[in-house]
Nucleic acid binder design. Structure first.
Lengths: 260, 260
DNA sequence: CAGTGGTCTAGACCACTAC
DNA sequence: TAGTGGTCTAGACCACTGG
């Protein structure tokens, strides 16, 4: 026999998943739920905490607030397209993807110099705690933070390619600048993981409780060495990552035939 | 001023992240924490619920139990390697990857016939609710469920390739059988998302509270059509997905030079 | 102002599991 | 059997926000 609070949560979950309650709809208030089920408020809060942690509802403060069924907008990040040959910088690609999907993109930049944590140093094939330039890019959709990207460049590369140290967007893309100095990236390794955010990540991305983050770590290689590592953290409720493997034309043709 | 329960959680989080508490260590009991901070038990439980939801600790029942710092084993799933040309089936690739990483793999199979949900039907370019064979494979590492994979084949393909309807593992791999009947997959589209599990997913994967799932949806294309969709759900605390783009030899060479 | 959720207390009884 | 967490109650005061 499941405990009371789980049964109450299951009932509400059913209402939402079945579609009887839609995104934006208000759930009954805590007092109403107490009366309906004849339990204490604490029990109701245990139940709703479950739904919040599943990302189904969120609490909205104030008199007109209450518990509201969450909206889900998904933005697609095409990992195979980003930074592939072409005249675009990665942020151009991202901007046009977001616009294509009907939203308004914006981003902020920041530059720091940091000692490389061991995990990342290992990926770059350099010593832990050696210095690196970190370019942080926070990307927002319709004004809501959507992803944070930290890209780490070993310090020796920055001396060769001083453009990397700009604290602003680099319109032509850093990949381009690296290439012009002889560092042409010919391979990428991507690692995709998911986890619950710590409080700092939750703060940056303004994540409601119960929202995991989707992180992808890309290491870029020239024929000689690893030149950079990017750690991109997405709010998982608003983003997905897409990869295309093999003959991409086949997929494009298929999509075209589906259109009409 | 953050509320009490957050301050208490922050203190414990610090202990864990700083390394003073290691995986397997027990946190103070609830009674001890009550005394230390002079608060009620309910407040302590609010604090520890946060840590549980961040996946940092888990509750172990019984006298010798308590709250224990969670262990993190990560298994790598190489999405670019799986099903790429070669004599191996996908499950062979998975088995050897798990063994390489020092764990013991096992899996169970199941076959169902189902109406295709609209989402997946659209990916296959067929009508919603048309019938499909679903091969479910639950993969475990050291006896713990680690991922569930459901692969959907449109019914017309199953008539052509009756092997698909076997309720067991197909040693040579379904991809191989499809190819032998003229359906050679030449492109794949992968979609990666993360979310909190519903109760059924949590049950199958035996997920502790606060563990997100990492889902990847792969659509396989022949030059003519989409032939199958696989939905693989990983426990995010035990798995990561890896992609290699571009010239893989460059990365292999880099790894080799790092070894000594 | 009225009503929402946010936080917190001080109790209680139960189920489980190692000792 | 003793000690852990799991569940639940019945109160309380507060901060916030719309009408």
């Amino acid at each position: 026999m499941p405990p009371l609070y789980r049964k109450i949560a299951a009932g509400l979950r059913e209402e939402i998943l079945s579609g009887r309650l839609r995104a934006g709809d208000r759930l009954p208030t805590e007092t109403q739920l107490q009366d309906q089920h004849g339990v204490s408020r604490n029990t109701i809060r245990l139940a709703t905490a479950l739904l919040v942690n599943e990302g189904l509802v969120e609490h909205v403060p104030g008199r007109a607030g209450g518990m509201v069924v969450r909206q889900r907008v998904t933005l697609t990040f095409h990992a195979s397209r980003a930074e592939m040959p072409g005249p675009y910088s990665e942020s151009d690609a991202w901007f046009s993807e977001v616009r294509e999907q009907g939203y308004e993109p914006s981003q902020t930049f920041e530059l720091r110099i940091e000692a490389l944590p061991a995990e990342l140093a290992q990926r770059l094939g350099v010593e832990a705690d050696s210095p690196a330039a970190v370019r942080r890019c926070i990307r927002s959709v319709n004004g809501n933070a959507s992803s944070v990207q930290d890209t780490y460049y070993p310090m020796d590369l920055c001396q060769e390619v001083p453009e990397l140290l700009s604290p602003h967007d680099i319109p032509q893309g850093t990949t381009r600048h690296l290439a012009e100095h002889g560092h042409v990236q010919v391979a990428y390794e991507d690692e995709v993981v998911a986890a619950m955010p710590g409080p700092t990540e939750a703060a940056i991305l303004e994540l409601p409780a119960g929202t995991p983050v989707l992180t992808y770590i890309r290491t870029g290689f020239t024929p000689e060495r690893a030149v950079r590592v990017s750690v991109t953290t997405f709010a998982a409720d608003r983003n997905r990552i897409m990869y295309t493997l093999g003959n991409a034309d086949v997929i494009a043709k298929f999509r075209a035939s589906e259109e009409p």
